[in-house]
Structure formats: C-alpha cells, structure tokens
Design a protein around this nucleic acid. Structure first.
Length: 422
RNA sequence: GGUGGGGUGGCCGAGUGGCUAAUGGCAGCAGACUGUAAAUCUGCCGGGCUACGCCCUACGUAGGUUCGAAUCCUACCCCCACCA
C-alpha cells in the first residue's frame, strides 16, 4: 500500500519533507495536522492544497487533525508577510472557526472511527497558557540566534518585526508539541512558507519531549503567468457560496490556463494519475473543447457545492456562452440563467419609462459608476440580452425577456440581471 | 544621539517651480484574433458629473514662499545605511 508521501510526491505536491518521514510512514499509519487561520469565515481555493493533503492522509489510512488557529489568529503569522498584521477580535475568530469546520466536512470524514478527522482549536490551550510556564517549558529550548536564522524573521529584520510576530514560531511549535502529546500527532503539513515554523515544532518535540516528529510542506501555487493562484477580478475565490457563487466558482476552474490545468487536476481532484493522463490526452487531441478544464471544474465544484449545482451551472453556462440573441429563449431557460447571476430587482415602471443603459449598468453592478459605464460603452464592452449596445441605448419594456428579466453582460463572461417587478 | 540617503497613483519607478492627474513598466478592464486558454496587437486605466467640457482629490504630515509647488523653505513623522 502506498503512503501519503509517495502519493503526494507523485502528484507533484511535495515541496519539501523531513528526511525520515518515508521510513516512519513505512512503519504504519500516522496522525497529521494542518493549521488554518480563522482570518475569514470561509476557506478559499488557495487553502485547498493543504486540505487535499489532509484528505489524502485520511484516504491512505492516517488520521487528520484540523487545527483552527483561534489562538494564533489573535497574534498573526509573519510568514510571507511584509508588514505587521492587524489583530482579530476574539468573537470573530470563534465564528470563523465554526464556519471553516463546516466547509472542511466536504473533504474529510469526521465520524467516530479511529481514522476520523478531528478538529482542535488552539485557543483552548493557548489563551490560558501562563506566560512564565511558556517561557520555562518552551522558550528555554530555543535560542534567539536560532530564531533569527529563520527566513520569515530574517526577511523582516530590515523593515521591522514586532516581538509578537517574532514569537509566533514558538507558539506554532508549542501547538505541534501539544498535539503530539495529547493526540499522538507526528506530522504537520503546511505551505512552503511554513517550513521554518514546522521545523521549530519538530525541534521542540525532540528537545523537550524526546519525540520524533515530521514535517511536509506543499508548494505555494502561482499560475503559469506568475500571478497568485486563486484570485479573480473580484478577489479570492471562496468556497462559501455567499461569497463566490457556485457559477463563479465553476467558471474559475473552467477558465484555467492550459498550462495550469494538469497540475490543478493533480492537486485538486482525487482522480488517479492514469485517469488524469487520459483526460489530458483527450484534451490534447482537441484543446478547443477544453476537456481538461471541464473535468476539473465539474469535479471540484461537485465536491464543494454538490452534483446538482454542477448541473445548474453547466446549463446556465451553455446558454450564456451559446452566443447570439437571448430574446429568443423561453422563460424556463431565462430562469436557469437568472439563478446563477447577480440579480438586481427594480420596479417594472422604471423600465417601461425607459432606463438608460448607463444607469442600468451602474444599477446592476457591472459598472462601478456612470463614468465607468461610459468608458466601457466607448470600448464596446457591454451588451444587453446578447446584443451590442452603445451609450445612447435605452432599455425599455421590449427588452424584457420572459419572466421580466434583462440580461446584461460585460466582456465575454461577466453577467448580471435586472428583474422587473410590480 | 550623529551623519548621509529616502518616503510619488494597486505595485515598481521617472519627474527638481508652470506645458503634470503626473513619462515608463507591471497588474487590471475592454476590443481584435481564438477555444470562456495562451501569445500578439489596439484602446482604457485617481474619482465624479447634466461630458468634445466641468468639478473634486492626489506626490509622508502640517504650515509657509510664490501669480503658480510633487518640485523651493520650515517643523514634524516614518524608513534605510553607516557611526555612537
């Protein structure tokens, strides 16, 4: 039976791992954890890499621990940050932690069995940790010299780093050692920027408790063109349907660059490598069909939002990208589309009186302001019901599709709807 | 504490009295081509408006000189380097 290190390595998901991990995994299943910052009330697709690592761990017989950083979130990790971070309110952290757990249940089995995932919140042991005890038990095992050598600290020495953030690695080390003691946890996953914090934890386990612990870090993803992975025009792609609609979520994956899509299939789906190879072969035969992107988008969206959502968003996309005049479609079709795009409700009389396109675009949110709308119109960037418009266009009752909807589009792929009532 | 250098639009980075809402690059948006991809080319790109024009806001902060300042002066804040 293959182990989690081999699997993740085959998938290109291992950036670095401690040298003895392979030998340890050969000896049997392991308990591993990933820490999540409760800085928001939702995960985003960037968080999915460590989530998938935990999921693979569980599938291969291990026991995953999800560590919610309710305590560390009050402090702030300096890793990868150029500036001091704002601190969060305690109440917010607790709410966010609850929301994250719900989303993780899509990926991990949280039942009662021996391999079931468990959730721990480091607020439970950190907030009541006496300072003097921390200094005696943990601080004593690290020299400042050691801490200064960590990249996360070194890179901040010129721009300045507060004592709070400087201490962060010791707190994360304390977490690892705590989970090792209380849960028998021997492995920590993280992004490659976590390497320093993870090795600090391994040090603490070894020096204080004489326990051998391991670390595995995953690559930080960028797109083929070098941009941060998981961002769109509107910012992060979230798992929370309130923040990123299932349609937008699906579109995000569907719009993957050819150069990125194979890696995404390896990272974000559980498809076997030979299945992925087959998909890529089919894709290579006719790239225009975007077989690989469709496979990726359907697969990830199904896991996060369910099969029904996949069917819905595909139906809507087929209509929206079908091209041509949308005035021909029937009410049921309009309803499918309207369910997937942002709808703004307005009075029917407003449309009957004639609504200028500039106002309409601002109303539905496709344009940030009237000026923005005019700029876009000057560049032929907008259309109504699939037909091109100019700045002089007025929307009237004739433009209402069955069901009292007007569909507005910016560029090729941004849609919004006005719904007339009353 | 001392000396020197520096703080410009989302980022990088020009600009040293008017021609500057501020060269250029990146990022972003739109158009063409295509495959809802990439690359390439083109346009937009501080904000607003009743818009071939008008009005706000902006070059660390606060004052000042001047008809006129991102550009000069003063004070203050912050950063960097070296010295103590």
């Amino acid at each position: 039976m293959t182990d989690v290190l081999a699997t993740l390595t085959d998938r290109g998901m291992v950036h670095d791992a401690t040298p003895d991990l392979a030998a340890r995994l050969a000896a049997g299943p392991i308990t591993g954890y990933v820490g999540f910052d409760p800085t928001a009330d939702s995960l985003h697709v960037g968080n999915l890499v460590p989530v998938m690592a935990l999921a693979w761990l569980q599938r291969l017989g291990g026991r995953p621990i999800v560590l919610i950083g309710g305590g560390t979130g009050l402090v702030g990790d300096p890793s990868g940050k150029r500036a001091e971070r704002p601190m969060l309110e305690e109440g917010t952290v607790a709410e966010n932690a609850a929301a994250l757990q719900l989303q993780l249940e899509r990926f991990l089995e949280f039942g009662e069995g021996p391999g079931s995932a468990i959730v721990r919140n480091n607020a439970t042991w950190l907030t009541s940790l006496p300072l003097l005890q921390f200094l005696r038990d943990t601080g004593k095992h690290f020299t400042v010299n050691y801490m200064l050598q960590k990249d996360t600290v070194k890179s901040r020495l010129d721009s300045g780093i507060s004592f709070t953030e400087f201490s962060y690695m010791l707190i994360q080390a304390y977490d690892f050692a705590h989970l090792a003691r209380t849960e028998g946890c021997e492995l920590q996953f993280g992004g490659s920027d976590q390497w320093g914090n993870i090795t600090a934890g391994i040090e603490l386990c070894a020096r204080r408790d004489g326990v051998k612990a391991h670390g595995l870090v995953l690559p930080l993803l960028t797109t083929a063109s070098g941009a941060k992975f998981g961002k769109s025009e509107h910012g992060n792609i979230w798992l929370d349907p309130e923040r990123t609609s299932p349609y937008a979520f699906h579109q995000f994956w569907l719009q993957s660059d050819d150069a990125d899509v194979e890696r995404s299939l390896r990272f974000f789906t559980f498809l076997e490598l030979d299945e992925i190879a087959a998909v890529m072969a089919a894709h290579g035969a006719d790239p225009g069909r975007r077989t690989a992107q469709r496979c990726l988008a359907d697969n990830v969206t199904r896991r996060v939002h369910g099969a029904e959502a996949v069917a819905r968003v595909n139906a809507a996309a087929a209509i929206l990208f079908g091209g041509g005049d949308l005035r021909a479609v029937d009410e049921a079709t309009v309803a499918i589309v309207a369910a997937e795009v942002t709808v703004t409700v307005i009075e029917r009389s407003v449309i009957e009186a004639g609504l200028s396109i500039v106002d309409a675009l601002e109303l539905c949110g496709l344009a940030a302001s009237k000026s923005d709308a005019r700029r876009g119109l000057a560049g032929n960037g907008f259309s109504v019901n699939g037909m091109p418009v100019s700045a002089e266009t007025t929307i009237s009752a004739n433009d209402l599709l069955p069901g009292g909807i007007v569909l507005l589009r910016k560029g090729k792929r941004s849609w919004a709807a006005l719904s007339a009532t009353g």
